[in-house]
Design a binder for these strands. Structure first.
Lengths: 339, 339
DNA sequence: ACACTTTGTGCAATCGATTACAATAATATG
DNA sequence: CATATTATTGTAATCGATTGCACAAAGTGT
């Protein structure tokens, strides 16, 4: 069978050295025009293709980038990866996907195997709040390859991050609900140990206080990001002696669950209760009772992450951490517009 | 800074050879227990980690697998990748993602760069119907690394594929519509040059004839898989002198578009027209007027693809192509149940 | 015509790990 | 005690490409 041809094969055929072939292929200026031509031609004839592994080993650069997320089958993360892949492909990089399922051990394991695979960088949305206390994490820093956070970040000096302004998003959503005439606004949060959820919560609080609405702890519920959790949260809220007239959820999925529960109880949306979700998952738009949500422009987030990575690779010495903050967009739909 | 430690560093420290270190680390039976122990201990102390690149170069095995799809930001493909990643991770493989956006040139380019990167296999849903006439494709065969098709396959001798039974799916959906009392059933197809779409169409035809319903070419419309295309198709159908009383769409997205258009024209679903989509995208379940659809169990499809790949790698010699056909499940929802 | 710079290639080491073969030490056999 | 075995470890080549240094041929200057 056709065993792959190497620069040695080309060299032998032309009675020159592999070194010369390598230089010719890399368009090294020290090689004469005539040799370059014949090498190039011969390489084409012999169907030569560079072995990236050998190159990677020699240069210490694999042109592979690891991307770690909790799970890929959510539109948000899939879109981010789409953005990353598209952008990096143009620079010759390949994207290696890893999922943690929000498991901290998995996250550490993923980091380790990616490092062993000699990736040139790691782009991740963290699953472990205390990632900086982790050995795997320290290995990344030791190796001095770029590490970037997107979405779920942790503020660590020297590490760039690409996020949306979650505080602003929380503020916008809440202000919108207030503008619609809501007075008792509940907030479904996830784990506030993560900066993104804390910031959304803080934005929510700030909007309340800016509008002289008293913050009521009992209206804040910590849930998982899924439909069932949203239903449960809604049940709790509706049982209150003084139930809310609006819900701002940090997740589209729990927002959907809440909506289902609210409707099941015969309460009207948006007349009785307005709802705003988060992430602008496709289904929020498609439903007859479309759900207002915060768009995080995930493709753009992915592309930006890729771009920052590329910059970092190019200016290794004079690298300065970047904290890119994208603007969230509130998308008002039926679930929260009373006009 | 901490430069990575190699087996040579360990060897030097212990006054032995790198060969011995390598053997000790690989648990080679020829190495004495005592040396193994001290090597292992020293390796740990020095934070040694295997360089997979060097290993890959030597062994001709990178433990990377390329996955090529049209785009990752659809639930169907994202779920497949989830399945593939989860399964392959357990066998030490990493997944490299590539997107074609249904562009044939992109597909060829992706194959080429993956091969240069020395992936150990390529799993793909094809974007190019004539892929077998492609040079990039021939390179895969020449290299003798496993190539598997999932979802959009092309029947090529020697190449395994993992799909659902699209004929059966088309049949089931159509039969269901007939059972609901529909007589004039339209079919929205995509590009019937792809086997999956042709098979769905053939299943549709067969169900019709099995029920003595005359096939009417004017009820078959070729569309793209998106909402706008679905709307356009519905417009055409509703303009017919004898419009359909059911639509079986090969895509959930065009089904959704059709539904929107139908409702906009004041026609009732499912009373006047029943609709069945394809792929069981999440939104089909979430909508108030939930959409019947065919579930392709994408995660399972991904896992199966990964498993077949692993098998193939393990039995290189006695490898026999496999055509795995998973069973599709019709999920009946409101858009097509008249009871 | 001699000394010196260019220009173009070759030599050989290197990246880090693996492995066939050789060699030595340790133990067994008669 | 000499030889045959076996158990361990070392030597060196290999995977494929890159690159600093050396060197020969050709060109330039005086």
């Amino acid at each position: 069978m056709t065993k792959k041809t190497t620069i040695y094969d080309i060299a032998k055929k032309l009675n020159i050295t592999a070194a010369t072939v390598s230089r010719a292929l890399n368009n090294n200026p020290k090689i004469s025009k005539s040799t370059k031509e014949i090498v190039l031609r011969t390489a084409a004839e012999m169907n030569y293709e560079q072995n990236k592994l050998a190159q990677a080993l020699k240069n210490g650069k694999s042109f592979n980038v690891g991307v770690i997320i909790s799970r890929i089958d959510s539109n948000f993360f899939a879109s981010i990866i789409r953005g990353i892949e598209e952008e990096l492909f143009n620079h010759g990089y390949h994207v290696i996907i890893c999922q943690t399922n929000n498991n901290e051990n998995m996250e550490a394991e993923n980091i380790n195997t990616l490092l062993n695979a000699q990736v040139d960088g790691i782009l991740m949305s963290i699953s472990n709040i205390d990632i900086d206390k982790n050995d795997a994490f320290k290995r990344i820093l030791n190796k001095k390859i770029p590490l970037l956070f997107f979405d779920r970040k942790k503020s660590i000096p020297g590490i760039s991050s690409i996020t949306i302004d979650d505080f602003s998003a929380g503020y916008k959503a809440t202000q919108h609900l207030i503008d619609e005439g809501c007075k008792r606004i509940s907030h479904l949060t996830v784990d506030r140990n993560f900066e993104i959820f804390r910031d959304r919560f803080l934005g929510y609080q700030k909007a309340l206080s800016d509008n002289n609405i008293l913050f009521d702890e009992s209206l804040v519920i910590e849930t998982k990001s899924n439909i069932e959790a949203g239903k449960d949260a809604a049940k709790k809220l509706l049982k209150l002696k003084n139930p809310p007239d609006a819900i701002f959820s940090s997740s589209d999925f729990s927002a959907l669950g809440a909506i289902q529960e609210i409707k099941a109880q015969g309460i009207r949306i948006p007349q009785d209760i307005c709802v705003v979700g988060f992430s602008n998952e496709p289904f929020t738009k498609f439903m007859e009772l479309s759900i207002s949500s915060i768009d995080q422009s995930p493709i753009e987030m992915g592309k930006t992450t890729a771009r920052v990575f590329i910059e970092q690779v190019k200016n290794k010495e004079k690298y300065i951490e970047q904290k890119v903050v994208l603007d969230p967009t509130l998308i008002v739909r039926k679930s929260s517009s009373r006009k």
